[in-house]
Design a protein around this nucleic acid. Structure first.
Lengths: 343, 343
DNA sequence: TTGAAAGCGCTAACAA
DNA sequence: TTGTTAGCGCTTTCAA
């Protein structure tokens, strides 16, 4: 591997200064002569010096690194969140170590451990599908490492969460379907151990009740919300008797594949079945008819999550008081649910 | 922050052993007594010990961390690549520090520098739109830090690249359009400084020539390939006289929005204009008619990139001999380009 | 404004 | 199989 690294000792020797002075100059210490500083900076560049982050971290007991655990990297929503996180972290000179649990609690535990050993200054988590125990986060809490959950969060904890109001968003979506004339609304959801799905179900249920419609649990189907699940759900919908006249799906990609399968089977959307999805994924604007959905501010969520965490680390803003940050979501009505002429 | 950290010294003291023995036990050193090892492992767990990665890295002069620079995190293709990278890296106990250049050469340079200072063991790069100079990678080459480009790569360099055969893929796509009867094929491309777009253009051109069609540069439009660019391109296409009867677009999301805009304007797809895109993005299977496209093995590319890099780092396989790894891509013909009855 | 010196926690060469 | 010991490169207290 190439030549030996230049250290502050090398620079110090060349300049007949002490390593301490070099260290100070390189990190804008106030008590340092302007000229000395220029001299050192120049020499450092000339010699190809680069900070040894380990030595520095070892000494300072800080890493300037944040850990991230997400269920999957390659979903539209998540990659948007990550883009926001990276942006803010980068601007604040923090590194991001990103890991994915692939929806497995076991991998989530392993990742939490690895990141813990990597001595991240803080951790950002969106939970896997099947996480039940949360022992693996206790180590962080105990060490006083700030822990921030986003999207798929943990209830009843002393850590901060960033979410949208899923219950309300679902309520609005279903209310909208009902306003369009739906009287028998089905719901495709994900694993109910996750707040996002449980809350959307609750919103669905409340909307039905609020408009005098019965809650019928045979109209609720739990799936993994994949496109394949959408296709299967299309068959399921057609076998329900009578067929529902509206469907609220907890994510867009599943909704879209469901619509496509139904159309192939000759079902009219929205005339026979009206649809509403969730996330405002790009596919929602491509499917025909365009999918009504809930806009989920992913990039913003990522930005705020990291900003909040870093502010906390810098002592600018304590997280201890903040329990939950709720971002604004928004229903976007499109053709998949609109039966009137007005839209 | 919490209590003081447990070190191997603490464990050693409690067990009346030397730190060296503890260190060995904790890292599966061969010359260690089975019982001693069990003892130490247990004690370590009991005391809540965690490896201090800095101290370890500082000593070993290795970080087990790879740096990644991508143009954007939140594109379907890129998030798929990253998912593959994370999977392999994680399995091999490597961390991934992911950064995005946001298509800016300047940010790419800054990120390269940061990652360099983070002492990554290797770097994976897909170039920004407007990168011209590549000085910022020279530091890596000089230090002997392996550098691996993927997708948007650098020509004529002594580093390894992982790509697909863009020229050939484009040739096939355009040949397919011609086989469907297109005689006046337009092309929407990206910044031609990037190999992927230059090569796709070359393939487009070769296909025309191979089938006796003239190359007309007024039919080639350079854009940023965003959905918005697709919408604008739709207007442009309609103003060309005569209107082209086929379009090859260098990415799917741009192609899809172009199709949508054309349909709104009353243009029949594929009867009046046949379309082929690139990437096999999910939207390609949602748009109507479904978009003919080139399947790009993103996940696989990410996996192979990291696997190759790690093998090199472990001395299992040298990269010095390997200049380019070419993955297989595949044309997927769908309704957007098929005029015959056969499909 | 600068310097001397200690030590962050770990690993590896050498010794026993 | 285990122990001794010397740093890896940096920051920081204390002293000058």
């Amino acid at each position: 591997m190439g030549k030996k690294e230049t250290t502050i000792y090398d620079i110090a020797r060349q300049l007949n200064l002490s390593p301490a002075t070099v260290s100070r100059a390189l990190h804008d210490h106030p008590a340092i002569n302007r000229n000395t500083k220029v001299l050192i900076t120049q020499k450092a560049k000339e010699m190809g010096y680069r900070t040894n982050t380990f030595a520095r971290n070892l000494r300072r007991q800080r890493t300037n690194t944040l850990g991230v655990i997400v269920p999957r990297l390659n979903s539209y929503f998540m990659s948007t969140v990550l883009a926001g996180m990276e942006k803010v972290a980068n601007e604040a000179a923090y590194n991001l170590i990103i890991t994915q649990s692939l929806e497995s609690a076991q991998k989530e535990i392993a990742n939490a451990k690895t990141l813990f050993n990597s001595r991240v200054d803080g951790l950002l988590v969106s939970l896997a599908y099947d996480t039940e125990e949360t022992e693996h986060f206790e180590t962080y809490v105990k060490k006083g490492i700030p822990l921030l959950f986003f999207d798929r969060v943990l209830a009843h904890k002393q850590c901060t969460s960033i979410v949208i109001n899923n219950e309300e968003a679902a309520f609005e979506a279903v209310t909208h379907l009902i306003a369009q004339g739906c009287r028998r609304v089905a719901h495709l959801t994900g694993d109910l151990r996750r707040n996002v799905y449980a809350e959307r179900l609750a919103g669905y249920r409340r909307a039905l009740t609020a408009h005098g419609l019965p809650y019928d649990e045979t109209l609720v189907r739990t799936t993994d919300l994949s496109p394949e699940a959408g296709t299967e759900a299309a068959a399921w919908l057609q076998h329900l008797a009578p067929m529902p006249d509206g469907v609220f799906v907890a994510n867009d990609s599943c909704a879209v594949s469901c619509i496509i399968a139904l159309k192939q089977a000759g079902v009219q959307i929205p005339e026979q079945i009206a649809f509403a999805g969730f996330n405002n994924d790009p596919v929602s604007r491509v499917v025909e008819p365009n999918l009504t959905t809930v806009h989920y501010p992913g990039q913003q969520m990522g930005e705020i999550a990291v900003k909040t965490l870093i502010n906390h680390l810098n002592g600018k803003e304590s997280l201890d008081a903040t329990n939950t940050i709720i971002l604004r979501s928004e229903l976007i009505a499109r053709a998949s649910s609109c039966r009137g002429k007005s839209l």
